[in-house]
Design a protein around this nucleic acid. Structure first.
Lengths: 199, 199
DNA sequence: GCTACTCTGGACCTAGCGGTCCAATCTAGG
DNA sequence: CCTAGATTGGACCGCTAGGTCCAGAGTAGC
């Protein structure tokens, strides 16, 4: 695809992606059709296929990429600076605040389950996101370890994975039960677990 | 709904639900049409609407109920007898084994995200499942506490919630990244965390 | 200002799929 | 057996929504 986009074209494309993302957050993926997106982004059918030649799948892929980027961006700057225990707590509050605000509107999970986990392109997006997120958390755990705030025997990678799973699970449960407490408890336990002395 | 079902009718209805559940596990909800279900269950269109008058939504609801029951049933008998540390470990192995086997085929998550988290009927199913699962875990944590295997200061409800979130998160990550390690690490950390001394 | 290419509008097409209908066929109970 | 109601088969319908097409407007570079 050697597409040449003018500034105007790029802006339109971006408007489509953001409009679609917004709609999907509110309505859910399968309740959003191309005509809805067309309406929301003030474009025409031909523009949708002009910028996304492979149609809806192509567009949904772009939206998934956009949303994956948002996941990390939303947690900044806290996620990028987990160097002290206090900063970990700040991040925890930030995460809870984010998911509390969006509630059911977790676009990414909807998208990935919609685009099909079998789709390799979709999986690449999620894998990249997961890896990046894990790397930030691992860096934070390592920092605590090196500063002596937590036990030296802590397995950095595994702890980071467990914390990531806690957030994911808490968010999933929030989405399906509309209760925030799972996310709060899961994060509290996961972080407290870091500090408890090993035996 | 004063439906009168003969034994034969009930069997057909059950065949439809199980056939649909099976198909959905493999293909994903939105890739399964009524004609697919008809084929898989060796029925006709009229039978689908005979047993599920409100159409596809009605059928999907029945499938979700069926799958929710499977989640708990699959973890038995281990989940029902978490009275010692060794039994917790056995449950952990069981959970990992289950999700390792089904991989992407977590039908429930697909269904709930598909039926819409907004749908109150769907939410009731998931809430009931979550509550039941949490109750089993809480009973297990309480048993450990009473037998003195873990610290008396452990908050039973919160610990159970954290463990549940660990499983959920691990399963979600397994589904989207196809890596089992998140579930393993999350469960390991959540359970180890229980045993670590409080400060 | 010419030209080539991008950008835009919207009518139109079509397949798939949920849903309807009715006639035929079993089956339980008297 | 007889009959009312449950069960079954499958043709048919109509809408939704993704996708196509082409003509016209805008724009960058020469």
């Amino acid at each position: 695809m050697e597409r040449v986009l003018t500034a105007k074209g790029a802006a339109t494309r971006q408007r489509i992606v953001e409009g679609a993302a917004q709609l999907i957050r509110v309505e859910g993926v399968q309740n959003v059709g191309l005509d809805d997106i067309r309406g929301a982004s003030s474009t025409s059918k031909s523009q949708l296929f002009h910028y996304f030649p492979d149609g809806k799948a192509d567009l949904m892929f772009a939206v998934a990429q956009y949303e994956a980027g948002q996941v990390i961006a939303d947690q900044m700057p806290q996620l990028g600076d987990l160097t002290t225990w206090r900063k970990w707590q700040a991040w925890r509050r930030r995460v809870i605040q984010i998911y509390d605000a969006q509630r059911q509107a977790c676009a990414l999970s909807a998208l990935t389950s919609q685009l099909g986990t079998a789709n390799p392109a979709t999986r690449d997006i999620v894998n990249a996101l997961t890896d990046e997120w894990h790397a930030y958390l691992a860096a934070g755990v390592r920092a605590l370890k090196e500063s002596g705030e937590i036990d030296a025997r802590v397995d950095v990678a595994k702890s980071a994975a467990a914390i990531l799973a806690a957030v994911t699970g808490g968010a999933t449960l929030l989405q399906s039960t509309d209760r925030l407490s799972y996310l709060e408890d899961a994060l509290t336990e996961a972080l407290d677990g870091l500090r408890r002395p090993r035996r």
